[in-house]
């Protein structure tokens, strides 16, 4: 049901097979299969309600927080089934980090926001280690120079774009293998958006990055692989350049030429 373009074989970090998601009786996602690799940024595009965010949230089991949600199929992280019974969800989420649509820093200091993950996972042996992790994470998120003199200020006092980079720093701080981004720029202005896109380019290769976006231009700018979702199915998957210049499905073509969505 999905049209796959021919791709070079890669080592899949995450491989999903026939993943379906139900909210109560309503099916939100129908048999999605995809491989996600560390070498590429993978973008999920599609109109609202097409299931792209739902699929993203299955990858670190954030759907567990919704009581009525039920997942079928198989998702493997480094070959390990993340939905098997006895899977440690807490460990999983430390390995698969997430950045949300709206920046959601905790109402704590900038330092404490970044130190939150390392503290709960015991990653730092002492204060100096923790300081080093905080600095490294903020540097990687491109926020260090802006906040290094006011680490004790509240994270909620930053601008929207800075808050989102703080959330990225927070996710990076636990040294995840995958970072899921759920429309990370939808609440930001164009300049802050450009800054985040640049950051995604810098993080590519170190982490497997999956980004859900409404903006086709953004998908074209930041990603190397694109999956197009429509009405709960994954319609087409391939190299970003192929999807945008040479779509094989009528629906994909209609969407990227702006006929709907």
């Amino acid at each position: 049901m999905t049209t796959f373009h021919e791709l070079d074989p890669v080592d899949a970090k995450i491989s999903a097979r026939d993943v379906s998601v139900f909210y109560g009786d309503k099916q939100a996602l129908d048999r999605v299969s995809i491989d996600i690799a560390t070498e590429y940024v993978t973008a999920f595009i599609g109109p609202s309600g097409c299931g792209k965010s739902t699929f993203l949230r299955t990858l670190n089991r954030m759907n567990d927080t919704i009581a009525s949600a039920r997942v079928e199929g198989e998702i493997r992280l480094d070959g390990e089934d993340i939905y098997r019974s006895g899977m440690d969800v807490v460990q999983l989420r430390a390995r698969v980090g997430m950045v949300f649509q709206k920046p959601n820093p905790f109402p704590k200091s900038i330092y404490e926001n970044v130190a939150y993950g390392p503290r709960i996972h015991g990653l730092a042996g002492n204060k100096a280690d923790l300081d080093a992790i905080v600095e490294r994470s903020l540097r990687r998120a491109g926020l260090w120079d802006e906040v290094k003199d006011r680490l004790a200020d509240s994270g909620t006092a930053l601008s929207g774009g800075q808050q989102q980079r703080l959330c990225i720093a927070r996710a990076i701080a636990v040294d995840p293998e995958v970072i899921l981004m759920d429309e990370p720029c939808s609440a930001l202005d164009p300049i802050a958006t450009a800054r985040i896109e640049e950051l995604i380019g810098e993080l590519k290769g170190r982490y497997a990055i999956v980004i859900v976006t409404h903006s086709m231009q953004q998908a074209a700018r930041v990603s190397q692989r694109t999956a197009f979702f429509h009405l709960g199915t994954m319609v087409e998957y391939g190299k970003t350049s192929d999807i945008f210049t040479n779509p094989r499905e009528e629906r994909t073509k209609d969407y990227i030429t702006g006929r709907y969505g």
Binding site: N60, M62, T65, V90, Q91, L92, R93, A94, R95, G97, M98, F100, K102, N104, P105, F106, P107, Y116, G117, I120, H121, C167, R170, A171, V174
Partner: peptide
């Protein structure tokens, strides 16, 4: 407290 706070913390791997 906004749901986003809870999600943010859970997504960090907090119990």
């Amino acid at each position: 407290v906004p749901q986003a706070m809870r999600d943010g913390s859970l997504a960090m791997g907090a119990t």
